[in-house]
Simulated assay, not measured.
Amino acid sequence: MKVLIVKTSSMGDIIHALPLVHDLTGGHPEAEIHWLAEESFRDIPTFAPAVSTVHRTAFRRWRRTPFAANVREEIGALKSALRAADYDAVLDIQGLLRSAVAARWTGKPVTGYTRRTVREPLASWFYDKKLDLPESLGAVRRYRLAAAETFGYAIDEEHPVFALRADRAVALPVTGPYAALAVNTSRDEKLWPEAHWVRLGEELLRRGMRSVIFWGNPEERLRAERIAARIEGALVPERMPLADVGAVLAGARLMVGVDTGIAHLAAALGRPSVGIFVSTPTETLRLIGDGPCLSLGGVGEVPTVEAVLDAADAVAGAR
Results as ranks from 00 to 15, higher is better:
residue 222 L to Y: 05
residue 220 E to V: 02
residue 220 E to R: 02
residue 225 E to W: 01
residue 223 R to K: 14
residue 249 L to Y: 08
residue 233 G to W: 06
residue 232 E to Y: 06
residue 228 A to Y: 10
residue 222 L to V: 12
residue 244 D to M: 05
residue 232 E to T: 09
residue 230 R to K: 14
residue 231 I to L: 11
residue 233 G to K: 10
residue 225 E to V: 00
residue 238 E to R: 15
residue 237 P to K: 06
residue 240 M to V: 02
residue 237 P to A: 08
residue 232 E to P: 01
residue 221 R to H: 05
residue 226 R to Y: 11
residue 242 L to G: 08
residue 228 A to Q: 10
residue 224 A to W: 02
residue 234 A to F: 09
residue 245 V to L: 15
residue 226 R to C: 09
residue 242 L to A: 08
residue 224 A to P: 03
residue 229 A to K: 10
residue 227 I to K: 08
residue 220 E to G: 11
residue 244 D to Y: 08
residue 223 R to F: 08
residue 242 L to W: 05
residue 232 E to C: 03
residue 247 A to S: 15
residue 232 E to G: 07
residue 219 E to C: 00
residue 239 R to P: 02
residue 235 L to D: 10
residue 249 L to D: 05
residue 224 A to C: 04
residue 231 I to N: 12
residue 236 V to F: 09
residue 237 P to G: 07
residue 244 D to C: 05
residue 229 A to R: 13
residue 228 A to V: 01
residue 227 I to Y: 10
residue 236 V to N: 03
residue 244 D to L: 04
residue 235 L to N: 11
residue 222 L to R: 14
residue 230 R to C: 04
residue 222 L to C: 05
residue 228 A to P: 07
residue 227 I to E: 11
residue 243 A to I: 03
residue 220 E to W: 04
residue 246 G to R: 10
residue 247 A to P: 08
residue 231 I to Y: 13
residue 242 L to P: 05
residue 221 R to C: 03
residue 245 V to Q: 11
residue 239 R to L: 14
residue 244 D to P: 00
residue 230 R to A: 14
residue 224 A to L: 01
residue 233 G to C: 07
residue 239 R to C: 00
residue 233 G to D: 04
residue 232 E to W: 05
residue 231 I to V: 15
residue 238 E to K: 15
residue 233 G to F: 05
residue 225 E to I: 00
residue 219 E to R: 13
residue 226 R to T: 12
residue 223 R to W: 07
residue 248 V to S: 09
residue 224 A to G: 06
residue 225 E to G: 00
residue 228 A to G: 10
residue 244 D to E: 15
residue 241 P to Y: 07
